[in-house]
């Protein structure tokens, strides 16, 4: 039974990535290379983040939230933005459109996040006899994360690649990107600072990521228009 449960959780966690890749035109334009690059850069970024966290952060002695430490964590969290920036602008890709590029990067990034952060706990935890809701919730969280990373990548491509965009929208784009980048800190604050239950946190993550995805989609389509 337990291998069955593991299988369920695994397809909930990793299925959406595969579905996204095969359902959208990404598969037709063979953008897997870009996703792999994003994966590798994510790995490097995560290592760098680990170093920073290990160097600058104290191990908390209790569960209380220290504002300074949280701020530092959020700043280190911004390394992700740098990583995405690096993949989007610095790496050369095969000649694919901007439209597909950001999707491929976002997908690769989200998949790397799921694979590195969730695969091992899933393997260790979901095969045990003991049943918990935790791994199903983690799968849902991975879905929210996918949406979040796609939005972030789309905003990133708006910020750094698209040159002629409406001037009035620029602060909004930056604001949204800022919100997306601080989202991990916000959720961790909700979880530990306010002591929210895991279900509540994940509900919040799903809602917020969908909202942000809608906003970034609108921004993207507005920016698309003048060029057409």
């Amino acid at each position: 039974m337990t291998v069955f449960h593991f299988f369920n959780c695994a397809i909930l966690t990793f299925g959406p990535h595969a579905v996204y890749y095969s359902a959208t035109p990404l598969s037709e334009y063979d953008t897997i290379g870009t996703s792999v690059k994003a994966f590798i850069v994510y790995f490097g970024t995560t290592l760098f983040k680990l170093f920073c966290l290990a160097t600058f952060l104290n191990v908390p002695e209790n569960d209380s939230v220290d504002l300074y430490q949280e701020l530092l964590k959020a700043i280190i969290g911004f390394t992700d933005i740098a990583g995405i920036y690096f993949v989007l602008t610095q790496l050369t890709h095969r000649n694919i459109s901007q439209n597909h590029k950001f999707q491929a990067v976002g997908l690769g990034w989200a998949f790397a996040d799921s694979a590195l952060h969730r695969l091992l706990p899933l393997w260790v935890g979901a095969r045990g006899l003991e049943f918990t809701w935790e791994h199903i919730l983690q799968g849902l969280e991975a879905n929210a994360n996918l949406v979040l990373n796609l939005s972030l990548a789309s905003l990133g491509s708006l910020m750094w690649i698209r040159k002629n965009k409406p001037r009035t929208l620029i602060p909004i784009i930056y604001l949204c990107a800022g919100i997306l980048a601080t989202m991990p800190s916000i959720t961790s604050y909700l979880r530990r600072g306010l002591g929210w239950h895991l279900t509540k946190v994940i509900g919040f993550e799903l809602c917020s990521s969908l909202t942000m995805a809608f906003i970034s989609w609108q921004l993207f389509s507005v920016c698309q228009k003048p060029t057409n």
């Binding site: 039974m1 449960h5 299988f7 369920n8 006899l129 003991e130 049943f131 199903i136």
Partner: peptide, 15 residues
């Protein structure tokens, strides 16, 4: 060892 376990039906529904 006491484990709280899920049923097969639950896993099927989840699938």
């Amino acid at each position: 060892n006491i484990h709280q376990v899920a049923s097969v039906t639950f896993d099927l529904i989840l699938l």
